[in-house]
Design a protein around this nucleic acid. Structure first.
Lengths: 230, 230
DNA sequence: ACAATAGTTCGGCTACGATCAAACTATGAA
DNA sequence: TTCATAGTTTGATCGTAGCCGAACTATTGT
C-alpha cells in the first residue's frame, strides 16, 4: 500500500463553514482569541473549541497561550497560499457566501489581507504601478522592473533585504471586493508596515479594517503616484 | 449583508475522500471517463455520478460527452493550483492517506503531474539543474538564470514563446513520492511534451504513469545533464 | 432487432460530525 | 477568599450527505 498526501483531510477541515470563517478571519495575519473566533464563526465557545482543536492538531493553525487567553493564527505561509488559491477558485466560479465578506464600506475601502494592504486603495495603487511600468507580469509572475527598483529605492524601501527570503518579493493577490489584483508578497507587507509606521493609517483592533486618516491617505497616494524626478 | 467567496463550498467538495481521489486522478491533465473515476475513487458508478455532478456544477471539473462516454477534466489552472497548494499543506503537516498515492514503482519512477513530468526522474533533473545554476530560487520564485537560457536555447527549447502567457515559465512543484521539488510551469510542460515527441517516453493510457524506454531515459538524462560546450 | 456497455435516477439505509447546554478547570481581579 | 471571565469536557440530539442495489435511458456493435 502506497501513501500520498491526504488533501481530503486538509480540505474537509477548511470545508466546514464555521472553520472556514475562522481561517478567513485569521487571514489578516492577526492572532485572535478563541472567543473572537467563536463570534466570527457564529458558533458557541464549546463548538469553537472543538473546531480549533482539529485545526491546530492538523497543523493549519498555531495556538499560543497567554494568561487565560489562547490566541490562534495561521500556522504557515503554505496554509495562507492554499486559502488564497481556494478563494481564487470560488471567486472565478462565482460561489458567494452571505456571511463575513468584506463587511462594510470601510473594509472595502482599505483592509489588511494576511499581512498586506487590500481594498480599493490597494487596488488603485496596483493599477497605477502597472500603468507606469513599476510592476509587470512576466511569465505569469509579478515582477518589479528596473524602473520600479529605482522608484522604490528613491522612496526609501530597502527591497534588497526583502528579496532574500523564501517569500516572493511581489505577488499578485486577487482582491475579494474589487475583483482585481493588489500587491502581496514581502514588498506588499513592507508597504503596509510603512503605512502604519508613518501614521498614515492604523490597523483596527481585532479587525481587518485599516483606517486611513484623510491626510494619511493623501500622503499615501502622493507617495505611490509621484513620478521619479529626472 | 455583504458577500465574499465561499471557500467552504469549494473546500468541502475537495474534502470528501472519493471526490479528492477523482480530482487527484485528473491532476495528470488527462481526461478520464466516469467509470475510470469511479474506479479511482473506489465507489460504484451511481455514487460517482453524484460526485461528478457536484464537481461539474461547482466549476471544478469540466465534462465533455463523446459517444456513450463522458470525459472529465480539471476545469482550469486555478483548480490545479488550489489542489497543489492543498498537497503542499498536507505534505508539510505529514497527513498521508492509504489509498491511491503514487501506485507502484513505475509511477514513482516517472509520472505526469498535471501536465509536466514528476517522479524520481523529474526530481533528479531538477536537482541537477539547481546544482549547475540553470535554475535558482530568487525571492521565493523559481527563475531560469541567464546560463539556463543559453543552455535551453542550445537544446532547442523556444522558451521565449513560453514566456508570454499568464502562466509562469518555471515553478517548483512538490513531488509526492520524492518529497522534493520538480519543475512545473510552461517550461516543465514543454519538456514533457518534448520527451514524448522524441519517443523517449510514452504516457500510458488512462494512467499518470510515464514509461521511459531504457534508451529513452539515457537520452533524456544526457539531454538535461550535458554541460554547455565553451 | 437485439444484446452489451456507459451512465443516470430513485429510494432507503446508515453513519459521521456539527451543535449546544450544563458542568467543570484555570487564570486573573477585587 | 470570593467572584468573574476564558476556555474545555461531556453527553445527547439531530441533519445531512455518502453509499449502494435496482431499475432506467442512451449509445454502440452485431
Amino acid at each position: 500500500m502506497k501513501y500520498g498526501p491526504d488533501i481530503a483531510l486538509v480540505a474537509s477541515l477548511i470545508g466546514e463553514p464555521a472553520r472556514a470563517n475562522m481561517v478567513l478571519a485569521l487571514m489578516s495575519g492577526q492572532a485572535l482569541s478563541a472567543a473572537d473566533l467563536a463570534r466570527e464563526a457564529g458558533v458557541t465557545p464549546p463548538t469553537a473549541t472543538g473546531h480549533l482543536a482539529k485545526l491546530v492538531s492538523a497543523g493549519l493553525l498555531a495556538a499560543r497561550k497567554q494568561g487565560r487567553h489562547r490566541y490562534f493564527e495561521i500556522a504557515g505561509p503554505d496554509v495562507g497560499q492554499a486559502v488564497e488559491a481556494l478563494i481564487a477558485v470560488a471567486a472565478r466560479a462565482g460561489h458567494l457566501r452571505a456571511r463575513s465578506g468584506p463587511k462594510d464600506e470601510a473594509m472595502r475601502h482599505a483592509r489588511s489581507c494576511y499581512d498586506h494592504l487590500a481594498g480599493r486603495v490597494a487596488v488603485e495603487m496596483f493599477g497605477h504601478w502597472m500603468a507606469s511600468g513599476i510592476l509587470c507580469w512576466r511569465g505569469g509572475a509579478l515582477h518589479l522592473t528596473r524602473k520600479g527598483r529605482d522608484f522604490l529605492g528613491a522612496r526609501g524601501i530597502a527591497f534588497d533585504a526583502l528579496e532574500n527570503g523564501k517569500r516572493p518579493l511581489c505577488r499578485g493577490c486577487m482582491d475579494w471586493s474589487e475583483k482585481r489584483h493588489h500587491l502581496a508578497g514581502s514588498l506588499g507587507a513592507q508597504i503596509l508596515e510603512m503605512t502604519v509606521a508613518k501614521g498614515w493609517a492604523a490597523r483596527e483592533r481585532n479587525l481587518r479594517t485599516v483606517s486611513f486618516s484623510r491626510r494619511g491617505e493623501e500622503n499615501f497616494v502622493r507617495w505611490y503616484s509621484q513620478p521619479l524626478a529626472g
